[in-house]
Structures are given as structure tokens and as C-alpha cells.
Design a protein around this nucleic acid. Sequence first.
DNA 1: CGATATTCATGCGCAACCCGCATCAATGGT
DNA 2: ACCATTGATGCGGGTTGCGCATGAATATCG
Lengths: 298, 298
Amino acid sequence: MNIDLEDLRAFVATADMQSFRAAAEAINLSQPALSRRIQKLETVLGVMLLERTTRRVSLTAVGRDFLPRARRLLDDLETSLMSVREIAEKRSGLVSIACIPTAAYYFLPDVISDFGRDFPSIRFRIVDAGANDVMQSVLSQRVDFGITLWGADDPDLDFEPLVEEPFLLACPKDHPLASRESVSWGELADHRFITVGRGSGNRLIMDLGLAQSRLRPQPFFEVQHLSTSLGLVEAGLGVAALPRMSMPVGPHPRIATVRLTDPVIRRTVGIVRIAGRSRSPAAELFHEMLLSRWRMAE
Amino acid sequence: MNIDLEDLRAFVATADMQSFRAAAEAINLSQPALSRRIQKLETVLGVMLLERTTRRVSLTAVGRDFLPRARRLLDDLETSLMSVREIAEKRSGLVSIACIPTAAYYFLPDVISDFGRDFPSIRFRIVDAGANDVMQSVLSQRVDFGITLWGADDPDLDFEPLVEEPFLLACPKDHPLASRESVSWGELADHRFITVGRGSGNRLIMDLGLAQSRLRPQPFFEVQHLSTSLGLVEAGLGVAALPRMSMPVGPHPRIATVRLTDPVIRRTVGIVRIAGRSRSPAAELFHEMLLSRWRMAE
DNA sequence: CGATATTCATGCGCAACCCGCATCAATGGT
DNA sequence: ACCATTGATGCGGGTTGCGCATGAATATCG
């Protein structure tokens, strides 16, 4: 037989109101139920806490000692529960993110998985989109923030860099360039070049990086997604320049990775959001975790 | 559905041991029962406190916040219970008292009744005895202390006075002395004097007080108890000298009360105990209450 | 990859506990 | 003495919590 918190509540209410009947009413119990809770508490403690007749209820000396303690225990519990609920409130909710496919595929799952271990009550909505659509989703406030390439300079948007990475050459293992340590962009002019379409963020970065180059690769295949480029390379149809994140991790049976120089073109992936917009606690939490996670990795 | 202390215990044990099975064993529950208590706690709080697989148990971020709070609540409860039990221990037990009949009858019940309201767990054993027997009981340590007349001067005993009172004359209402304001002890020589036996403490005090008086009352009736004296007076058989405490309170249909002078003989009733002897907390408590109660009244 | 041991979650039946209603005894007040 | 009020207790019924048995999930090992 153990002490219940309900026993303590019954005792405190009865002591406060100096009446079993009134206390029972106050804590929504019948008088007999309250009577028994007091008796139980007294039995467990082995002391009389209240002296009572049908007309009068008063604290014994032990009861007077115990009352402030009981009250404090109940107050502390209430405080702790409110505190946890407050924390929980902060730590639940929905985080909505618009994300370019590369980041969605290559690093977001890991971060979300880790985050979910700490905050299992926080849900996610991930919108998979090209860099331009990510921007639009952020500007229209359809999502809390975006993870995308940095290229535009919009005063309404904040950009926080997460990763900066070079473009590398992916070519078939039996390709003439496969054994090279590095290849210049100009040398690609003589090979079938696979690239993404004009409207894409990656294409824009490449074009901007090559603006001053006299010798440039000419697109032989234009695709929509970087992963499709990789597929064509693997099929031996040509070479492609992809950001490092998109390259296969470790040795690949069919694809070689070669450094691209002259120039070294880099892209930055980061968090973009509307300047000064406040978001839910959950979104803030995830945002912080993203920053700490990827800044540490770099 | 409310939080139980058992829920908190289950949580703390599981967090400490990082295993449901081990925690269940540690707090003497089956694993399923423990599992359900954790689930209940999580449901009430609306958060996941523990992340678990069949192989691993770890705290969520909310769980990490809540653990020290839960631990503290349980610690505080334990402390409060021990404290109350300690107090209760001090406030329970047995008080044994040897007491002259007058005090036993006339004032002890009130004090015990009041005391019992504050310390209902303290029991009493009252030995009703003449002054000499009270002394013996105290000296032999058969009782915690005595309440008796003060006459002896024993270096082994401490005496603390409670009440000092004069002897008064009780006589039938139709007696010649009944209408007097005061009567000298010498005048009683001409009347039938009812008194207690030679061995009694009251008799001793009277004899000592009258040692220098040339004219003294001669005992016509010798009885054992003061209350018997009063009975005889009420029956019209004589007059008696009794301490004020033994006189009827307020007007009496058959007995008049008259002051006794020349000399005014007083007796002191107080607490007698063995010098330096330590007693139970309960006996100390009652002793203190006796002192405060009767010193206030005088 | 399959087999295995371990561990948390859940269904089930049973016992314990707690409830409110009804009733009685005690207690102050008139 | 009578009466209204209030705490204690018996009783029956509903709720809660238990352990046992079982299944699913999870690491580890060969």
C-alpha cells in the first residue's frame, strides 16, 4: 500500500476547508471516498493527521507539520508537469521544408532521423522541388524554410550556408578521362557532355562559373535531374559535371570521379527563409539542429 | 487519468538502468506492467520520454528534462515521509504516571484530553496512589514521573511545582460554622473533625502546619481518601479540612466552604521525577504540556 | 543471408482497489 | 429532548492494474 497523490490532495483540501464534506465537494469526490483517502494516508503514515468530530475538523500536531510538506509536493508536481508540457509544446508540431532533391536525398534523411530520436513528436512535411520552386515556396510562406542553392540576392530572404562543394566530373570507368587526376572544363568540349536544363539552379551556377572561359563543353544531353545525369554516365553515354554530394560515395563499379579545374566551380547549399519571419518552436529547433549538424561536419 | 508516484518510479528506474526488463526487476514489477506504466506516463504528459527498441533504451530530450524533476519529486516525498515518521515516532509511545487521587480526578483528565487531541498516538498508564506510593513508583522507575504533594526533600528527586493551594473547611450548610467567613484551626477543636489517616501526605502536611499550634482539632473520623471526608461532611457527620482542589466547584446544596486560618496551611502539588533521568520523547512532551498548562492557569 | 537470443508491446483473464449510495452513530445547537 | 449536520462504514458494481503468454522487432553471429 503506497501513498497516492490523490491522498495528499484529499488531505490538503480537508485541512484547508476544515470539513470533510466541503473538501469532498471541492475535489469532486463523495464524502465517503474522501474519508477513506484520509484514513488510508493516516494508516500508511501510522499517525493521525486530523482530529475530527461530526462537528469539527482540526489538524493534529503531526498534521500541522505534514501539511506544508504535502502542499509543496503537490505544487512541485504541478510545476514539473506544466514545465514538461511547456517543453513538449515547444517540442511538438510540424516542420515544413522545401528542399532541392539532392539535399532531400543525400543528407536530410539522416538529420531528420537523428532529430526524431530527440523529438519524436515533431512531424515533417518535405516538399521536393527545384531551386526556383524552393524559393517560391519560401517567399509564399507555404513552408517554414527552404534548403537550396544560393545564387539569388533577395533582400527579403536570409541565406545561411550549410555546405559548399565543388562540381566534379563523373565519367565511365573505361573513358579516356577516367584515369586523370583532374580535367579542365575546356577539355570537356571534345566529349559528350550531359547536363541539366537551362532553368535549373545547377545549370545557372555552371554557366556563371564558365562565363569568362573561352573553351566550354557543349551539352549533348539535357536532363531534368542530376540523378538522371548519373544514370546516363553509368550507361556509358557521356560525361557529366555534378556537385560532390551527388557523386557516388566510395568506389563505384562503373563510374569514375575526377576533379574539375580551370575553373574550380563550387556551389553552396544552405537554409533560406524570409528575413525576420518568426516560426514555430519546432521549426526553430530543427533549424538549429541543421546548422549545428552540418557546420560541424564541414 | 492522473499521474501516479508509481509511474514516476517506473520512469526513473528505467532511465537509470536503460532497460525495461532490468528496471521492472529492480522495482518488483513484471516487464509488461512496467511497460504500461511508462506508456501511461507518456500518455498523460503527451510526450515520448523514452526512445526504445528491443535492444536499446534512451531518453528523449523531453525525457532528459523531466528525469531530474521526477527524481526530485520522489526524493522530496521520501524525505517528507521519513520526516513525518520521525515526528510520529517522537509523538507516539506510552507515558506512565503515578498520581495522587486528587490530581488524578480533578485536573489530569482535562490535560490528557487536550494532549490527546494533538498527539492521539500517545497512550497513558495512570497509577492512582497515595503520595508515598507515588514516590516509590518514581524512585523504582516503574513510571516516568509522579504528580504528588511536595513534602520530602530527596536529593535523588526533582520536584517541579504545578499548583499551590490552601486547605479549606468543608462543613454542612446547617453547621454553626457554615456562615463564617473564616475559621481558625483551633476552633475546630470543639467540633467533630473528619480527617485522613496518619500515613497520608495530606495528614502529614496538616500535622506539620499545626506543629506550633497549641489548640488543635482532634480527629473524630479517620478515612483513607479525601473524597470520603467530603461524603461524611455531606451526610452531616462533621467538618473536614480539604485542599481547595478537592472542594466542590461552585455552590453546593449541602456543603459550605469556609476559609481556614491561624495558620493558613497550603500544600503544593507538582511533578516529581528522578533527577537527571532521561525519558521517552512522549513523556517529555506531556511533561512540557503539564508545565505550560498549569503554570498558565496559576 | 538465415538462425538465434533477447527484449519491448499487447491481448487476456483475474484479483484488487476505489467509487457512490445508503445508513448509522456522534455531535453541537436550540 | 429533539433535530440537523457530518464523519464512518457496509455493500455492490465498475475500473484499474497485475502477471502470463505470445508476437514483433532488433542486434549479433556464423
